[in-house]
Simulated assay, not measured.
Amino acid sequence: MKSSNPVLNRIGAAAQQPRYSVPGQGVPTSYAPGGYPEVVQTGHADVMTLDDVVVKTITLLGLAALSAAVTWTVLPFELLAPVWIAAAVAGLIVGMIISFAQVTNALVMCAYALIEGVFLGAVSRAYNTAFDGIVLQAVIATLGVFLTMAVLYKAKVIRATPKFMRVVIGVTAGLGVVMLVNLAIYLITGSASPLRNGGPLAIGFSLVCIVVAALMFVVNFKQIEDGIAAGLPRKYGWLGAFGLLVELVWMYLEFLRLLSYLQDD
């Protein structure tokens, strides 16, 4: 599961570049590194706004939730594992394409949300079968952390300084590598490593992942804020929504794991 978004990093960088516009026009007249057009807010309606990012985020979350509910309801239990794996691979591929190809197409974003929903529906049903009520607990915990970080960011209790963002993104990238190596070990040996076997080390690792995912919300908030300040076109709001969806999915999965470890004990 992705945890940092290269596209949003470029949005943040775009906000730091010089911007030029033709007076009275909302058209790009310069381009930031990475190919993003820089559009200064000049009264043109087609620019990225916070409200628009919120609407797009709710849209993606709604599609993911709907897809998850349908998967949970109609998918036979014996097909959970293959569908889980297929959706995880498909989501990873589509997510990487969105990130590195700088995709802002609404249909692609919605397709990604639907794929993630299938993945989440299969995973959630499997966990809930083993640990009744765990899904609701994980959802509440995830939303609680997200809202808490949003309030702390808005109140400027946590400030996304350049150093803070570099450190958090670096740690997130490191965790991503560790998780990929851990997955490779599982596929080769067929058994969970100490980081995922439910022991004390696994509990500690999940707690670290949850903390880092929470800090990544702050990074995403800042990158969205920078994109709005740069006056980027409205379509780039999809990237802000995409980044938040990725982080929410990651945190939800880590809460599922952590709660399963604790209940299993």
Rank of each mutant, 00 (worst) to 15 (best):
L201K: 08
A126S: 12
V145T: 07
F119M: 10
V145Q: 00
A202T: 04
Y127L: 08
K154V: 13
A214E: 00
G12E: 01
Q25G: 12
A87S: 09
T49Q: 08
K2C: 14
N5G: 12
E78Q: 15
P200N: 08
I115E: 04
S67W: 04
L92S: 11
W238M: 09
E78T: 15
I224F: 00
F77L: 13
Q41R: 13
Q16F: 12
P6F: 03
P233E: 08
L66R: 07
M251Y: 02
I97R: 15
Y20D: 14
N182I: 07
P76R: 02
G170R: 05
L262D: 04
V94C: 05
V83R: 03
F131K: 05
A90N: 06
T71W: 06
P6Q: 01
A87G: 03
P162H: 02
Q16N: 15
E247A: 14
Y112P: 01
Y236W: 14
T29K: 11
G26C: 09
G240E: 01
A150N: 08
V219W: 03
F146N: 06
V157S: 06
A138D: 06
E78H: 15
I158W: 00
G237E: 00
A241K: 04
G62M: 00
L175Y: 05
K56I: 06
F146T: 08
Y31K: 13
V167E: 02
Y36W: 12
V103L: 07
A86N: 04
W72G: 09
V208H: 07
V40Y: 09
Q263E: 12
W250L: 13
L232W: 03
V118H: 05
G95C: 00
S67A: 13
S67Y: 04
W84E: 14
I224G: 02
V123K: 10
M165A: 10
L61P: 09
L259K: 08
V55A: 13
P233Y: 04
A88G: 11
A45V: 15
V139W: 08
G35Q: 03
P233M: 03
P200I: 09
A184D: 01
V249F: 12
L187W: 12
G62F: 03
T172K: 09
A213L: 04
D226C: 08
P233H: 08
S124H: 08
R159Y: 04
V123E: 10
G133M: 01
L232V: 08
T148C: 14
Y236E: 12
F164Q: 03
G198V: 03
W238A: 01
G34N: 02
M149H: 05
S124V: 06
P18T: 01
N197C: 06
I185F: 12
G199W: 04
I93P: 06
W238P: 05
Y236T: 11
A69Y: 11
A69P: 07
W238V: 07
V74T: 04
A214L: 02
K154N: 14
L61S: 10
S30M: 07
M179E: 10
G204Y: 00
P194S: 00
N182R: 10
G204V: 00
V151T: 09
S4A: 11
I11T: 14
L232S: 02
Y153G: 00
L239Q: 15
R196I: 15
D265I: 12
G91Q: 00
S191A: 13
V212C: 00
R166M: 15
V211W: 04
V181D: 01
A69W: 15
